[in-house]
Nucleic acid binder design. Sequence first.
DNA 1: CGGGTTTGACCGGCGC
DNA 2: GCGCCGGTCAAACCCG
Length: 267
Amino acid sequence: MEWKAAVKIEDPIRSTPFTDHFPLSDLLDGEKSSLGFMELLGIQNLTPSIFDAMFQVSTPSIESLCPSQASKVAESTEVLNQPTTPNSSSISSASNEEQSRVVEEEEEHPKTQKQLKAKKVSQKRGEREPRFAFMTKSEVDQLEDGYRWRKYGQKAVKNSPFPRSYYRCTNSTCNVKKRVERCMGDPSIVVTTYEGKHTHPSPNSATGPGLSADRASAAAFAQRVQVAMPLHHDQPQLINNLRFQKPTYADYGLLQDIVPSLVKKED
DNA sequence: CGGGTTTGACCGGCGC
DNA sequence: GCGCCGGTCAAACCCG
C-alpha cells in the first residue's frame, strides 16, 4: 500500500493553478524538503474546522519537536478541541464554507473607544477564536503569508531569551491575530500561531476576490514555508531536520475529510 | 504626513 | 487581597 497525495495548488503569486501527484514516501525521504504541510496535504482553504483538525492531529508531536513550547500549544489546543457548539467543529464539516462561529461571535458591537468591553466579549471563557499553530524552521520571524500585519505588542516570554510578538491583520474589518515567537528549545524554529479567520482576500493575491483569503494564505505558506507539522507521534520522519510523519491508516478517516484528494493506492 | 513599530502602562484571569 | 502572567492599549517614536 502506498499513500499518494494529490496536491492542487492555486498559487496566489503566479496565479497559475496546478496539480501534482507524488507518493508520500518520496517526501518522507526528504527529497522535497521545501514542501509545506498544507501543500503536502493539498489543503487550500483553512477553515476553522481545519484549524481544529490540524491542531488535534499535530499537537502530540510538537512535544517531541520543541518540548518547551509544547505545553503552551497544548493549552490552546485544549481550548480548541472542545466544540464550542454541538455542531460546529465536526471535522467532516470542513467542506462547509460557512464556518460561522469565527466571525459571528464578535457581532457588531459598535466599536466605541471603550473597546475594552468588546475585548472582554471576545475573550469570554472558552469562546476563543480558532487557533492554528505553525512550527517552521526559519531565520526570519515574519513569514510571508500574503497578508499585511501590524505589530501591536511584544512581551518577554518567561524562561526564554526570545520575546513573543503580537500582530493584527491590517484590514480594519478583519480581526485575525497572530503571535510569533521562537522556540526556546531550538531557536531556529519559529512558532507562529494564528487566531481567527480572514474576512477578506489576501492583498497579495493576484487572482482577486475569487481566491479566498484562507486559500491564498495556505498557498503562500505552502510555497515558501518549510513547515514542520507532524501528523502523528510514532515513527517520525525527518524533513528539514524536523520530524514528519506519514499518516497512519487510523488517520485516514480524519484526513480524508480535510483533504479529499489524499488517496490510497495499492501496488 | 501616514502608516508601522516600540515600549511601558494597564487590564483581567488565576493561583495562593 | 496580592502578585504573577499573558495579552492589549496607546502615546511616543521612527521612517519613507
